[in-house]
Write a protein that binds this DNA or RNA. Sequence first.
DNA 1: CAAACCAGGGAACGGTGTTCGCAGTCCTCG
DNA 2: CGAGGACTGCGAACACCGTTCCCTGGTTTG
Lengths: 231, 231
Amino acid sequence: MFAMEPIWGRPEAAAYGPRPAHSRDAVAGAGVRIADAEGIAAVSMRRVAAELNAGTTSLYRYLKSKDELLDLMVDKVLREDEPPGPSGAWKADLRVLAEHARAMMLERPWLAEAMMARPRIGPGALRWSEAWLSIVGDRGRDADEMLTVASTVMKFVFGAVMWELSERGAGYDPQSWMDAQGAYGDAIIAGGRYPHLIRTMVEAEGPHSADRHQRSFSQGMEHLLNGLEAA
Amino acid sequence: MFAMEPIWGRPEAAAYGPRPAHSRDAVAGAGVRIADAEGIAAVSMRRVAAELNAGTTSLYRYLKSKDELLDLMVDKVLREDEPPGPSGAWKADLRVLAEHARAMMLERPWLAEAMMARPRIGPGALRWSEAWLSIVGDRGRDADEMLTVASTVMKFVFGAVMWELSERGAGYDPQSWMDAQGAYGDAIIAGGRYPHLIRTMVEAEGPHSADRHQRSFSQGMEHLLNGLEAA
DNA sequence: CAAACCAGGGAACGGTGTTCGCAGTCCTCG
DNA sequence: CGAGGACTGCGAACACCGTTCCCTGGTTTG
């Protein structure tokens, strides 16, 4: 497997020559600004260059590819959002860090997907990894258990956030969708092939409430933490 | 909120006119074949049309947009992979269904991301939702608890799969990356800013083993199930 | 048989990421 | 101090992309 060198392994400034008019961080910042304001789809090389009053292809003096631009954008955001440090109570600390990570990713709907698309090995991402591990690392357990606990929580957080974003992006929530749909929704109910699904939709309060994602996340975290505590 | 009608709510065949040369399912099948063989990035309207020996723009007789093509591809795969039914032992059943879902998504690396990108409301997706809920629905609990249990497990499974795929896609695993990297890897270690991270890399056996993802998944599932059982 | 309707698909539009090559700028070395 | 060379900025161009328009020709209904 080729160990393609990440952008953080390459020096930013050259030894010789004219001073660059911009910087990696400025390029990343322009990308973040556009993604926040107009969505990740609006982040094109031309658009980012325009944001910087630069020629489109000048960006390739700072980056090898658009993927690297996304790497820089992700890491800039992670670097500028400091993870809360451990207090010593690992369960509470995991709760706090998980909530913080969730809020961060919900605030920038493009972030979670961009993080999952590429390795997370920039300085900002490493600091977040360190934060997760430092919470579970001060127990007496061995390194493998540290890893299991931390990565299990991280996986749940990512999954929960992507789940929530997928509903938000579609402007869709399960209950109102069921109500609003015409022929297809009726066919689903009339078909009788999904009894548990329909019973849940009808009986459960969760899907109707406005804070159902927050509640579902908190409850899931609580059960998960209980399971990890018993281990 | 606009309830944009999903493709499953629209009839496939028209009343009048010549018989269509293809079908939605054939179009979806062509897309799946290309995605499986050449990756999701190779799935373009032109490429799919070529696979069917059709004109590019003929596809728009079957679909409104490329997004709908992805909807059909996802649902076709879900429809053709039958979820294992419940045996009555809910914990074991959740384990089995989770493993099945994980294997399915790992086999087609494009599937998980496509599933998260759009609402999952086709027949195949509904049958999978029904399968999850039918496992937890035959306990005496109320509907909200059913939902919490099922969705918590689903979120963990998605998060775990996307995590694994993000490493695979980069041809990167944390340990070998640490070993292979030159200047940047050294700087990480020398800097001393990530003590827990480095200790984990050095001491843990997990990151070195070939089946570390499977093991991490199984262990996480076990802890999660224990926590859900106690609830 | 005529009218209405629909499937197939070529041409074209405005985007995309990226490569190439060139002009001009600055640093280093003789 | 001057020359060579490395470097930056960037316009032009390429091969694609998703999608709309519009026309031809086939099929079904009345």
